[in-house]
Design a protein around this nucleic acid. Structure first.
Lengths: 119, 119
DNA sequence: CGTACACCTGAATTATTGTTCATATGTACA
DNA sequence: TGTACATATGAACAATAATTCAGGTGTACG
């Protein structure tokens, strides 16, 4: 798991104690990667617009493409990503597929980020 | 600002009322782009590791590169990005430059995201 | 059935991004 | 002033990602 002090490269490291302290605080790569995936998902204007629109109400692909001003194909591709990351869910009603947010944390992340931006 | 119903492409749009409602909810592109920039910043494992380490304590570039297991140059490049986005700040002490988080929202975003991942 | 329509998918293309390497700053200290 | 060291930077390269285009599902309804 956590490497000991002895394993730390002594050449580059300046503050050995601080580095050791930081090492014990490190998150597993698996967790870091999941977090990065999540943030990456929200790091694209088109996807953000989609998520924000879905925060208000469920929408079909067709409507979404109009609202976010992108092609249906592009929106569909992005929705697949968002689906994979469990950010959105969908229900089928005949030919139409309605998308909605899958997790209330997304909205909170969105608002939290807004506070950072508005400073 | 907000376009009226008449401006909506009637061909692609299915649910006119829902689309109109969504249009009134739309955020300015400027805001969306700022948000996307912020999330994009947090959408990379190396940068996330950096941010997480800085959540605990301030660290110099040298230490950071050891902690996140990346080259000093790579870390320096990433830090510049984080600096530009006002996610981290720094202070100089002789030859050494110490970095720390610039905004408490970052930590909250981090924790909020963790909750989404842990489900 | 077969046509229409909402949506999905894969390949291709172009744009963006992360890292490396070589070199440049800037500070301390002899 | 000159050397050492911490950090920054620019160019180059490889990897990733967003969009478009051309077709492929799946459902409804005549």
């Amino acid at each position: 798991m956590t490497q000991s002090l002895n394993d730390i490269c002594q050449v580059r490291c300046i503050h050995t104690e601080k580095v050791e302290k930081a090492r014990q605080y490190i998150l597993q790569d698996e967790i870091i990667n999941s977090l990065a995936e999540l943030f990456k998902c929200m790091g694209d204007p088109t996807r953000l617009k989609i998520l924000h629109a879905l925060q208000q109400q469920e929408l079909c692909v067709c409507d979404l493409s109009v609202v976010v001003n992108s092609s249906e194909s592009a929106v569909s591709h992005q929705l697949r990503l968002l689906r994979t990351q469990k950010l959105v869910k969908f229900r089928r009603d005949g030919k139409v597929i309605y998308y909605s947010l899958d997790d209330h944390h997304i909205g909170m992340l969105f608002n939290q980020a807004l506070e950072h931006v508005n400073e």
